[in-house]
Nucleic acid binder design. Structure first.
Lengths: 246, 246
DNA sequence: CGCAGAATTGATACATCTCAAGCTGGGTGG
DNA sequence: CCACCCAGCTTGAGATGTATCAATTCTGCG
């Protein structure tokens, strides 16, 4: 079931080498990381960790998408993080997972054994500094997300999410968001609902509405075309400028 | 108007010494911080910084409460952070403020000139390590907040907020939340609404409802008594256990 | 082919927002 | 000392956006 090919890539030609927690490392530091790392693969839909589980590793997403979700006793779910390639999973110094981690697409993670990684955090400032930087970025993202959850309408939420995915997708292909954008939704309607604090029916309705109004084009359920990115951003209700990094 | 007494306390008897960004510093490191720091006071209601403003300092909250808020073009506001004594303001490496910072009570901050502080971040791992730890805590808080914003009902939101404030207040007095708790709300109804993603009318109604149902007691608009903390936590809808640190 | 999971659509219920009118308490000036 | 004033708050009535419940309709796949 779980296709766990334990391939062992060299850090040198790692696709996330320049963005992940190891981005700043010198070759000798990389060598240390190399010794404590191992790869793991998960299939789309698989749970990586359950909230509360003991965690004996921290990790970087190498490819694919994972989500962090929190659940209330009665089953209400809220996604609280979306992990893309190069994003970091886990918290040094914490024994158990605080959130459910799920693979929404096929996923490959570069895992570091926790104890030795924590040791490196102390002895190798470059790792700690990079992790701080990444954590601050995540905090900013979380706060933008809070604005979305607290104050945006369903339509604005959908438009915002599509914008985020479109931008991310464009950045992976190194194209600037300009003219028509085309991408595949990596999330089901239900996952989008969990992300946005909506029900899947409302997500579906709003996507239909945006399609009806020509803001987006759909080819099947997942293949999306954005004819006019600025138009989409208007619908997202965001602060004027097209979402330049703050 | 602005009572800016530029008192200069010694770090040694600073009330937030053991919890702030300087918590791990040795005496020689403290001495360096001492040289680049200065105090600033703000009155309740005053704006500390506007989003987009140039920031030439980072700071720790010494006493009082500040809030971080984000605003949509049409004026919808969402609070995205609540800064209590020992919390950190600003982001090393960033030139301008990303959020509006407002003093909701009288506020004293210990400010560090930005450039020298950034230098210390590189040379003094203890500062960077502590800041990482604090940022990870903030990220956790933000994610719990996201669950509240996305999935909780108005009544649950109010109960959750009261619980947070009650716990914080109790921790400042070093009493465990048990039996009746009494405290003053540091926020107006409108600020509570901005925190919770509600309107102030809804906040008011839900507070009235909780009062009617005996979950809380009100003495005036601000003075709150919680006769049964567990009851309040039930109303907050949170994951079973009374909110033990995860 | 036909099934199962995913998505759409419809009808209705309900929570929260919106607009509007009073209330309350503490401060101020006559 | 009282009257009034004003910001902060409460309460009401109605509008509205989203959730809920319930059918269908897609779509990919064995």
């Amino acid at each position: 079931m779980q296709d766990m090919h334990l391939v062992h890539h060299e850090c040198g030609d790692c696709p996330i080498r320049h963005r992940a927690v190891c981005a700043r490392c010198e070759t000798d530091e990389l060598a240390r990381l190399e010794q404590i790392k191992y790869y793991r693969s998960y299939q789309a839909g698989q749970t990586v960790i359950w909230s509360g589980d003991r965690m004996d590793f921290v990790a970087s997403v190498v490819s694919g998408i994972a989500t962090l979700t929190q659940t209330l006793e009665d089953g209400r779910r809220q996604m609280v993080g979306m992990l893309l390639p190069s994003d970091f999973v886990g918290r040094p110094g914490r024994a158990t997972a605080a959130y459910d981690v799920t693979a929404t697409t096929d996923l490959v993670m570069c895992c570091f054994r926790k104890k030795p990684f924590e040791d490196m955090m102390v002895t190798t400032p470059r790792v700690a500094q990079r992790l701080l930087e990444m954590t601050l970025d995540e905090l900013d993202a979380a706060r933008e997300w809070m604005l979305l959850l607290g104050r945006k309408t369903a339509r604005e939420k959908i438009a915002s999410l599509l914008g985020i995915i479109a931008r991310r997708d464009a950045s992976l292909r190194l194209k600037t968001p300009k003219g028509a954008l085309i991408f595949d939704l990596p999330l089901t309607r239900e996952e989008m609902a969990d992300y946005l604090g909506l029900t899947l029916e409302t997500v579906s309705r709003q996507i239909s509405a945006l399609k009806r109004d020509g803001v987006i084009h759909l080819d099947g359920k997942r293949h999306v075309t954005i004819p006019d990115f600025d138009r989409l951003m208007d619908e997202a209700g965001d602060d004027s400028d097209g979402g330049v990094l703050g």
